[in-house]
Design a protein around this nucleic acid. Structure first.
Length: 206
DNA sequence: CTTATGATTAGA
DNA sequence: CTAATCATAAGA
């Protein structure tokens, strides 16, 4: 990779500053999130990575969405204003990070499933241990671990930070597949609501 | 109170 | 293929 290309790929664009950017259906936000930067500013430094894989979870009618089983203490944030982080613990050990979307009061969200870590690689490695760079944030549990996102950040404002989103290079192509791990959701399990950059080495699976 | 299970992962 | 591991939600 040339010096110019390397510089370009590590360039973080403008942060999302308008809440209404998030106030859209999860499918729309999900597509837009691919290629964008996820940035976490911490005392130790900044961890940033480009999002390469996401899943859309639609409102109450989507049987795979947490919000389909009513409002509870856990999914409270999904029912709140768009532009916040919904973080929950899964299988007793993995933290999954979601972007709360709209439109309006509709409790939709986008699960962040994989990212290519750019600036802050060493910090991410410290948090994750010694793993291959392409696997650092591949899979929702790994992404949470790599970015240092846990339940303390549940409800965090994505406009205010410390976790924010910024413009990045748009992918030339976007692939759609069914979502992972939601076989119980009947028809909704088969819907193509997973969005991924085809053949990206940082994605969690084909 | 008890109990089943999950938007997962690593390892055999 | 399965164990790990616990917050959550649902049921008694």
């Amino acid at each position: 990779m040339s010096r110019a290309a390397a510089a370009a790929s590590s360039e973080i664009g403008a942060f999302v500053e308008r809440r209404d950017w998030f106030d859209r259906p999860s499918v729309t936000v999900a597509r837009d999130l691919l290629g964008m930067w996820l940035v976490h500013d911490r005392a130790q430094g900044r961890i940033a990575g480009r999002i390469v894989e996401v899943e859309a979870y639609q409102g109450p009618e989507d049987l795979a969405a947490h919000s389909a089983r009513g409002r509870t203490a856990r999914n409270e944030v999904m029912f709140g204003r768009p532009g916040h982080l919904y973080v929950y613990l899964i299988y007793g050990l993995h933290h999954c990070a979601n972007v709360v979307c709209g439109p309006g009061d509709k409790p939709e969200a986008v699960l962040l499933r994989a990212a290519a870590i750019g600036p802050g690689v060493e910090l991410a490695r410290m948090a994750r241990g010694d793993v291959a760079p392409t696997r650092l944030a591949a899979g929702p549990g790994n992404l949470g671990a790599a970015f240092g996102i846990d339940r303390r950040l549940n409800g965090a404002d994505l406009v205010a930070g410390p976790v924010r989103l910024a413009a990045g290079p748009r992918p030339s192509r976007i692939a759609r597949t069914p979502r992972v791990g939601v076989a119980y959701a009947g028809r909704w399990a088969r819907r193509p609501l997973r969005f991924v950059i085809p053949d990206d080495p940082h994605r969690s699976r084909p």
